[in-house]
């Protein structure tokens, strides 16, 4: 479990706290969403959970390991995909980037090959191993960054707006691939997102505002509440509303899932 307890964080040379009194947890085998307006502290919370930043107040632990005193072990358990792939990618060539972390772990070459292939397969980059990273579109860079983290087979995976740059037609297929990957391994997943349909598929949500957790609960609790939505600059989850309205029309669809699942159910 990732646990943050009364966490406060102040960036160097800043007077204001970027996070205040934040308590949150991520269990293995659950999908936790983080939503909230620009600048509310989502990415900062992700970095503290990964142990890239140390709390100014309170504590962050991963499976009981304090990120401050047992940083290396804690960080190994957590994979973080950055909001901006340009700040993550350090290697020139796609497969180098994906193999990079594994090589640092000193794994045997056969294992590295297998893991790299499987990760590239998950993000749909098979056949593009030798392309140069800097030439890739933002969408493809985002895929490479994701593959590099997946290849490390972390126990917890934090994705900071993983689909911001993805084209609509691949956004859901890719996300479902990640969700499948996660489910197979029973990994914990943290999804930072501005997309309400993505938030809708999480088990639980934290709604951030001004560095605090302003709302938490199931996606229905958080997203159906008009007041919370207004406060947190959120939107109506479109597929959820659509599913509800179809149900009202007598079509027996489940609570809002992806478009493809809705279509499957309706045409069954």
């Amino acid at each position: 479990m990732i646990l943050v307890d009364n966490l406060g964080y102040r960036y160097p040379k800043q007077t204001e706290l970027a996070l205040r009194d934040v308590s949150a947890r991520v269990d293995p085998d659950e999908v936790v969403g983080i939503v909230g307006p620009n600048g509310s502290g989502k990415s900062t919370l992700g970095r503290l959970m990964k142990g890239l930043l140390w709390p100014s107040e309170g504590r962050a632990t991963v499976d009981g390991l304090d990120t401050r005193t047992h940083g290396l072990e804690a960080r190994r358990l957590v994979g973080l995909v950055f909001q901006n792939p340009n700040s993550q990618i350090v290697n020139a060539v796609v497969e180098q980037e994906v193999a990079f972390g594994l090589e640092n772990l000193g794994l045997p070459p056969e294992d590295i090959r297998r893991r790299v292939d499987s990760a590239l397969n998950s993000v749909g980059l098979i056949g593009r191993e030798l392309e140069e990273c800097y030439r890739l579109s933002m969408a493809d860079k985002q895929r490479v960054a994701l593959a590099a983290v997946i290849a490390m087979e972390p126990k917890y995976l934090i994705l900071d707006e993983p689909t911001a740059w993805l084209e609509p037609t691949v956004r859901w297929p890719l996300l479902e691939e990640v969700l499948r990957w996660r489910a197979e391994r029973r990994a914990g997943l943290v999804l930072v997102t501005h997309r309400m349909d993505e938030a809708q598929t999480c088990d639980r949500l934290y709604g951030m505002l001004d560095g605090r957790v302003e709302a938490q609960g199931t996606p229905e609790d958080v997203l159906q509440d008009r007041t919370i939505r207004a406060k947190l600059a959120l939107d109506v989850p479109e597929t959820f509303e659509l599913a509800a309205s179809l149900r009202a029309g007598g079509v027996p669809v489940a609570e809002g899932t992806s478009i493809d699942r809705l279509a499957e159910r309706i045409s069954a």
Binding site: G36, Q83, E161, A164, H194, A233, L234, D235
Partner: peptide, 10 residues
Amino acid sequence: TANLDPRTRN
């Protein structure tokens, strides 16, 4: 609008 929160995007 990439990266903008839902309200600002709308």
